[in-house]
Structures are given as C-alpha cells and as structure tokens.
Design a protein around this nucleic acid. Structure first.
Lengths: 147, 147
DNA sequence: AATCCTTTAATAACTATTATCATCTGATAA
DNA sequence: TTATCAGATGATAATAGTTATTAAAGGATT
C-alpha cells in the first residue's frame, strides 16, 4: 500500500473508532488500489495472497463495517433478494437506503436524462434508470422516535 | 383475475410460446393485480393461497421465464453477489443487462437530474443515481459471432 | 382420446451470507 | 515495554436464496 493510501486508511479508522488491523488494511487496499466493483469473494481471494489465513467472514464483516462507516459504498442498494416489477409504464424508483423499500416514481417526475458525451464504443444502450436514494418516511420516523 | 388481465395473459403466453398453465396464471396475477416489487418468496406465499401445492421452484422458474420473455422486468439488473464500490467520486454506472458487468461513467457525462415535482413528504433525499443499462461490448461481440 | 412435448412438484444441491464462540491483537495507559 | 481489555479474527456451523434433477402430470395438437 502506498504511504498516502496507508495514511488515509489510518485516518479513516481513527475517525470511525476502528482498530487499524492488518486485515482491514489489506481489505481496504484491495479495493482502493485498483478500479472495479468487487464481490466479497473476490476481495477475499485478493487479500489471501498477502494474508493466507484470513477468513472469508472477516472480509464480509469488515466490508460491512466500512460501508456502514461510509468509508466505502455498495454498488446497489438492492442486493439480497430478487425483485420483480410488473409496472409496464416507464418509471423510476425511490429507494430507501435504510430499509431498502422501493416505491415507484412517475417517469415525468424527473426531466429526461441527457447524455453529454458518447458512450464507450460497443455499448448498446437500452435505457436509463434513475434511482432516487434516501431515507423513507417510515425510517425517518423510527429514527427520530429513538432519540 | 379480471377478464382483461386474463386475456392479456393468454395473449402474452401465446405470443411467447408458453403454455398458459394455472400456476403461470396465478403467478402473473399475483404480480399485476397489486402494485409492488415482490420477491419470489412473496409471490410464492401469495400464490400458495390459491394453489397450495405449488412449488417455490416453479415460481422461480416462471418468474425467470416471464422476465426473459419481457412480460415482466426485474427491479434491478444486479443481483447475485454484493458489490463494493471504492470510487469516492460521484459517478454513474453502465450496467450490462446480459453479463451484469459494471463500469463507471463519469458524473459529468450526464446532465444533472432535474426534479420536476416534490418528492413524497417524509422522504429524505440522499442522492440520485443513474444506471445506464444496455449490452456491453463483449456481449455484443459474442452475440454477433454466434449468428 | 392418443400422442408428444412442456411443465410441475418434490427435493437435493449449491452459492452467498451471517452467527457463534474460543482465541488473539491493537490501542491505551502504566 | 509491558499489562490490560475491548474489540477483532479464524474456524466453522447455520441460514437464506437460488438452481438442478427427475419422475409424474398436464396442455396442445392431432
């Protein structure tokens, strides 16, 4: 890990009250040192090259910790189970990043997407989908009730 | 199932060369008769009320069949494994609906999202994410090679 | 009604993820 | 440095979600 990344890692851990362990260091490095959208399994394989005795559960736990702390993000908030949409009309989705509930948002609620550049050659565009991410009413209510 | 929905279902099955079985009818109905973004498990529970002996595998298989035929859509094209994104800069994603690969698209490649209406009260907006869905270069190439 | 081909139910198998718990380690203070 | 201890780790069992297999049943066509 380059010194800059290392320092950033230490700083982030301190900031979030996390012990800066070897495992975390390597997991963090595996993600930030190369572009990509890796799965826990892939990170595990990568980190194992440096720390052969690391456990897959450790990778999962720390990825969760990092995401929860805001040090990393998940690519999509819909992960887990497959969801089917029977709404045939073009529309967008409101997605709660807390409870992951999904609500339809009328297509015309948002101005059409405008492409300012050419897409990579070879990519055959099908459609744009906009996700409006945030905290839903129910989760906001539950949150404020707690305090 | 109302007659209109039933006729549409028959028509869709015919159009896609699918036998119009009771199970398919009920699965289709469970989705289109009420708004929502249901999981296979939820559909299964719903359909079981009418067809107690239906198998969960049948639900999965038919949902896949319907999605593949274009009769229904999946809410999001990436399911499977959890993916982590270490790119701290705001950006969008190109997603291949075939191989599900993910590529970053610079934030400025698309004009900013414009909200034309108020969001539902209580929803606390965090951010907009745009997914650019289509077929990636590799998949297009593989496809044309086949023919 | 007979035939054929598709679909289904049951269930085993598999993949992805989480929980449990004994052991170990990083951070802090002495 | 070393002692201390909360928090982290590794091993693995458990669970959730999904897919594969196969014998039996059902729709479509004749």
């Amino acid at each position: 890990m380059c010194r800059e990344t290392y320092n950033e890692f230490r700083r982030l851990c301190q900031q979030h009250n996390l012990a800066a362990t070897h495992q975390r260091q390597k997991i963090y490095e595996a993600l930030v040192s190369r572009p990509g959208h890796y799965s826990p399994e892939e990170i595990y394989e990568q980190v194992k090259q440096d720390l052969p005795s690391i456990s897959l559960a450790t990778v999962y736990k720390n990825l969760k910790t990092f995401v929860h702390a805001g040090m990393l993000r998940e690519v999509s908030p819909h992960h887990g189970s497959w969801r089917i949409d029977a709404n045939r009309h073009p529309h967008h989705h409101l997605v709660c990043t807390h409870c992951r509930s999904i609500t339809d948002l009328d297509f015309d609620s948002l101005a059409p997407v405008k492409l300012r550049v050419k897409l990579p050659t070879g990519f055959r565009l099908e459609k744009f989908t906009i996700e409006v991410q945030g905290i839903c009413k129910a989760c906001t209510a539950a949150e404020t009730k707690q305090h």
